[in-house]
Structure formats: structure tokens, C-alpha cells
Design a protein around this nucleic acid. Structure first.
Lengths: 212, 212
DNA sequence: TAGATTGTTAATCGATTAACAATC
DNA sequence: TAGATTGTTAATCGATTAACAATC
């Protein structure tokens, strides 16, 4: 049985992936943990420890092959396969997500977007037509949905999330300012923008203490 | 001299604030660390430790006064004063941020939005007209800007951030997929949506291991 | 006063860093 | 082979939890 990977490690993985992607674009073939640590501002020890949770990707005396490590990392992250996403809520944020074409490059395919406002149902967003939220259940039953992005007010998202779980959806990208309380086999990733902004405010307000 | 507050603690503060706000709305007057811990799914010990970094807000035998703690928390977070924000980039994401009226409730006032695309400069977003990015420096010199939100491609954000720093901007809300490398007295809060999505992908792909 | 619950110290647990033998 | 750098164990550091005296 595999030992559990700590969430501290998991949080760092996408950043490794991003740096490896940049190195690849620059045509860098190999990199040592020491060089990468300098670039990323972390310790070489941490990089080696983190990677070795998933296997030995390097070679003594050589370092890591960038292309190989990049590909392995994409497998670890599960982005070597496509993910089908639907968006619930076609307000500004929902539309922004829908239009963000970079996700598709990473295999995140946005297939449908829903809203309960009759004024916008039927409108085009990217290459999709906004569907009515009352078609949501039907859609989920007839199409494979890996991830549901919730870009709706918190009162609605509790109900919608429950419904989607009962229809078999196993992963939520939650932009609502609420902690979804879902069964433990359901995965939730929160993007709480207002909390992010408060952290910024805290750091801005209190930094003087550190620098005086 | 005050002891440094760990970033683990700081990350939790906005969530406390959110729960306290909800309690306040429900009309709850007092709460013990034990009750709150149950609601939030953390230990009571952690709550007391976290709060006591900033002072003794409770009372033995009674618990915490919700209204008082909520207000104190807003001071700690620095949201008892308004913050003036500008947004650079009026694409979907920039417009979504601009239109998100909830921020104003917390004292985050969005004053201006800029873009370098002549097709959209002059258009209305909320109650603002999109300004040309070549007016940005002028604007910052003549108006007080606390926070700049960067909703532009990564190649642009490096340059723009440097410029804004030289004009005195001290805080960035960075939506670009890049690590801004700014002087250490400048505060950066990153919102890396694609990394968030990769973490979701990781957890979705690997959860079976945990639940089998 | 007695009961409840904080504030805070001490104990535990986990994550990060350092060190170095293995090895390419 | 000699030099470099990994993979991994051990040491340190920090964060979380437990415990309890202080006190409302």
C-alpha cells in the first residue's frame, strides 16, 4: 500500500509543472535539483523529497531530464487525460472561466454552461449556448461529467452540489463563498476570491511591522 | 517587538471571519471555541491558539462575543478601512472582478480598469469606462492606489508590475500564471486558476487509492 | 460559589532541511 | 575513473494538539 502524500506536497506539484513547462519552452534538456531550487526559490532537498514521493525520476551525476519529468508530472497530476467540465452559473465569473482557452491546452474541456436567468439562457458564450439550469440533471445523466465548476451564489451552490453528487459528479471546482459539505469520496477544490483578497489586505496592512 | 505570525495562521483568518459573519447573521451572540471548532471542522485548540496570536478576545467561562470578535477580526485583516483597487486587463476575468459587487461590501473599492485593446477601450464595465493602458502611469500618479489586480497575460504582467512598483504600488492581486519577482516590501497574492484546477485533477485522479 | 471555558505551556506530530552513501 | 548529483536516512525545525491552571 502506497503511503499517503501530504497536501503540502500536492500543493507544490502544479508549480513544479509550470516551471518544467517553461524550461521545456526554453529548450533546456536537463536540470539538477540545485539549479531548479535556485530558479524556484525553494531548497534542492525539498524538490528531491517531493519528487521521490512518486518515484525516482532523476539520475545520479546527471540530474533530471526536463522532458521526461514534465511528462511524468502530467501523469501524476492526472492531466495526461482529458477532463470534461461543466460550468454552473453564467455570470461574469462563469463566462470568464468558459472563455479561458488555456484550460483546454491542459486537457480541461468545457462542454456546457448553465444558468437560471431566462434573460441570458440561449446566449452564446465561446462556442457554447447557455443552457437552462432545469436541463442540468438531464445533461449530467446523458453526458460524462468529470468536474462541475460552481460559479453561483452560495445559497444555490449547496443545493446544486447535492443534486450533482446524487447524479454521480465526483469533483467540484467551487467559486462560491461557502464550504460545500459533501461525501468524503467527492473532491472539492475551493477558489475563494474574497478570502484571497483578505489575505492580501492582511499582508499589506501588517507588512510594516516586518520591515521597520 | 511582536512575534511573527506564521502564514499557516494567516491563511485561516479569512475563514474564521466568514464563519463569524454567518453566525452574526444568524443572530448568535456568543460562541465557545468548542462550538466553533465543531462547525468549522478544526480543533478548538487551534482556534484559541490562532486568535491568541492577536490578543485575548475571549472570556473564561463565557467564550467569545461574536460581534466583538468579528469586528476585531476585521481590524486584524485590515478591512476596517477601504482599499482602492485598479484592475489591469479588461478581458473576461478582469471584467468579472470589476463586476463582483461583494468586494465593495468588504471595503475593496474598484476605481479603474485598464486595457490595451483599442476595440474595448472606452466601453463601460459596471459604472466604469475602460481606460487605455497608456493612461495607467498618469492615473497612478494622480490617484491613490492600494492594490493592483493583474488580469493580463504573463508576458505583460511582468512589465506592468515593474512599472507599477516604480510608481509606488505596494500590493498586487496576481491572476497571471507567473511568479512576479518584486522587491520584498511589495506584497503579492497569487490566484493561479490553472494550478487550482491541476490540484483538483490530482485529487480526483488519485482519490481511489485512498478509498479502496 | 461552582461550572465553564479561556489563555498558555508542554507534548506530539509532521514537514523541512541537512547530510551522505549510492551510483551514474 | 573522478565528479556530480541523486535518493534516502537522520536531524532540525515548526505547527498542531493536549492538558491544565487561571479566571470569569
Amino acid at each position: 500500500m502506497k503511503k499517503e502524500i501530504s497536501s503540502a506536497v500536492i500543493k507544490r506539484l502544479p508549480r513544479y509543472y509550470r516551471y518544467l513547462g517553461e524550461l521545456l519552452e526554453e529548450g533546456v534538456e536537463r536540470i539538477s535539483s540545485g539549479e531548479l531550487s535556485e530558479k524556484m526559490g525553494v531548497t534542492a532537498s525539498q524538490i528531491r523529497q517531493d519528487l521521490n514521493n512518486f518515484g525516482g525520476f532523476g539520475q545520479q551525476g546527471y540530474g533530471y531530464n526536463v522532458n521526461y519529468l514534465y511528462k511524468e508530472m502530467s501523469k501524476i497530476l492526472g492531466i495526461d487525460n482529458n477532463h470534461n467540465i461543466i460550468i454552473v452559473g453564467a455570470g461574469n465569473l462563469g463566462q470568464a472561466i468558459a472563455n479561458y482557452s488555456n484550460f483546454a491546452k491542459r486537457g480541461f474541456i468545457i462542454n456546457a454552461i448553465f444558468d437560471n436567468n431566462p434573460d441570458i439562457v440561449g446566449k452564446e458564450v465561446g462556442d457554447m449556448k447557455i443552457m437552462d439550469t432545469n436541463e442540468l440533471a438531464d445533461y449530467v445523466m446523458n453526458n460524462h461529467v468529470d468536474i462541475a465548476a460552481l460559479a453561483i451564489p452560495k445559497v444555490e451552490s449547496t443545493v446544486i452540489a447535492q443534486e450533482l453528487v446524487s447524479l454521480g459528479v465526483k469533483a467540484f471546482w467551487n467559486f462560491s463563498h461557502i464550504d460545500l459539505n459533501l461525501p468524503e469520496d467527492v473532491v472539492v477544490e475551493n477558489v475563494h476570491l474574497s478570502e484571497s483578497l483578505m489575505r492580501l489586505s492582511y499582508n499589506l496592512t501588517n507588512k510594516e511591522k516586518t520591515f521597520l
